[in-house]
Simulated scan of single mutants.
Amino acid sequence: MTITEYFSLLFNDYTLRTITLGTAVLGAICGMLGSFAVLRKESLLGDAISHAALPGIAVAFLITGAKDSNILLLGALVSGLIGTFWIRAMTEKTHLKSDTALGLVLSLFFGFGMLLLTFIQKQPNANQAGLDKYLFGQAATLVESDVRLMVIVTSLALVVMLLFWKEFKLLLFDADYTKTLGFNTRFIDITITFFIVLAIVLGLQTVGVVLMSAMLLAPAAAARQWTNKLSVMVLLAAIFGAFSGVFGTAISASQNNLSTGPVIVLVASVFVLFSFIFSPGRGLLFRQLRFRRNRRDLQLKKTLQIMFGIAETHDNISHPHAIKILNNFQGFTKISLRQMEENEWITLDGQKWALTQKGFEEARTMFDKKEENNQ
């Protein structure tokens, strides 16, 4: 199946439609909530929570003996919240830094989860088959009820975000000021963290424990390159996440033996790479172009200042001078001469140059500004 055939079958095939809608909704909610994790400098929190959810899945299966996705995800949610509570407690009650607490919880919970999964796999009954899909995800197992749950949680998160938008924004950029205004910062922090945990848990079935943090952070990291406004960043992150889910699913379905979760993460990484290079404000390409333009402008102004100093020694500022006089001055290039001629700062006649009235006034303005700055 080609990608074109995939999109032509999308609205007629139940399975393709369900998986695509599920991955798109997952990408959108992860992008929205991941923006808050990125801006709060808690990028590793998603990785820790996704790994901390694994023992909850195993314990839920051991208690119920069933592979009902809702029950397993409920166990993952409880385990993820416990892991988050441990992280908060270690950073607040001890001298440990947040990265140390994240690493400890991630390793401890993931190791315990793998131990439980190994124990479950060695049980004599065959009901435990398929639990390992939560490690790397298996989007093909999504059904309509799973997608409906994702839509409900996304809608709930969106409503809460709109209701507490001002409080969320204040807490993100100035927690101390938020306290002085009388807001309950602990409640706001817990609310944001709860929905981040909820989004991570929802994505375990699709993307898996190992890759879920990338799904949470990649769309937000890409969106951050394009704007300084929170609302725009959240919207862009949701769009990038949704497109990553759709195109990742399409690429996975069009090829044999390609897991959907890893492909979605790779597509999201392409958005990040594109944003890092081509975003106008922070992109590497435009940054390099600005650097070259600024360096060229500096060379022009430095050469103009030199010419101004030479022209001032004559009563007639338009008196021609030999170009070779400039050879000993750093920053002078033939390209800068041509650019200055285009700016009508100088006139060129063979191997001689002469300062124009416009160039003289430009140089005088630069000198006046320099003197003001020195004062």
Rank of each mutant, 00 (worst) to 15 (best):
E92F: 02
E92I: 07
E92C: 01
E92G: 00
K93I: 06
K93C: 05
T94R: 08
T94W: 06
H95D: 09
L96I: 09
L96G: 00
K97S: 10
K97P: 00
K97R: 10
K97C: 01
K97E: 04
K97W: 00
S98P: 00
D99S: 06
D99N: 06
D99Y: 01
T100I: 13
A101L: 03
A101Y: 00
A101W: 00
G103A: 07
G103E: 04
L104D: 01
L104T: 09
V105M: 06
V105F: 02
L106Q: 00
L106S: 01
L108P: 01
F109C: 12
F110I: 12
G111Y: 07
G111S: 14
G113T: 09
G113N: 08
G113H: 08
M114H: 06
M114D: 06
M114W: 04
L115K: 06
L115N: 11
L116A: 13
L117Q: 10
L117K: 09
T118I: 13
T118K: 13
T118F: 10
Q121D: 13
Q123T: 15
Q123V: 11
Q123H: 11
P124A: 14
P124L: 14
N125V: 11
N125S: 14
N125A: 13
A126D: 12
A126L: 10
A126K: 14
A126C: 02
N127G: 07
N127M: 10
Q128R: 03
A129N: 14
A129E: 13
L131G: 05
L131K: 07
K133S: 12
Y134A: 04
L135W: 05
L135D: 04
Q138D: 13
A139E: 05
A139P: 07
A139S: 10
A140K: 08
A140C: 02
L142F: 08
L142N: 05
L142K: 04
V143W: 01
E144R: 15
E144M: 14
E144W: 12
S145A: 15
V147K: 02
R148K: 15
R148W: 09
L149M: 15
L149A: 13
L149V: 11
M150K: 03
V153I: 15
T154P: 00
T154C: 09
T154Y: 06
S155N: 05
L156W: 07
L156F: 12
L156M: 13
A157F: 05
A157K: 03
V159E: 04
V159W: 07
V159P: 02
V160E: 02
V160G: 02
V160I: 15
M161N: 05
M161G: 06
M161V: 11
M161C: 12
L163I: 15
L163N: 01
L163G: 02
F164H: 10
F164E: 07
F164K: 13
W165G: 02
W165K: 14
W165H: 14
K166Y: 07
K166F: 06
E167I: 09
F168G: 02
K169L: 09
L170V: 03
L172T: 13
L172N: 07
F173N: 09
A175K: 15
A175C: 08
Y177G: 10
T178R: 01
K179N: 10
T180C: 10
T180A: 11
G182I: 12
G182R: 11
F183A: 08
F183P: 02
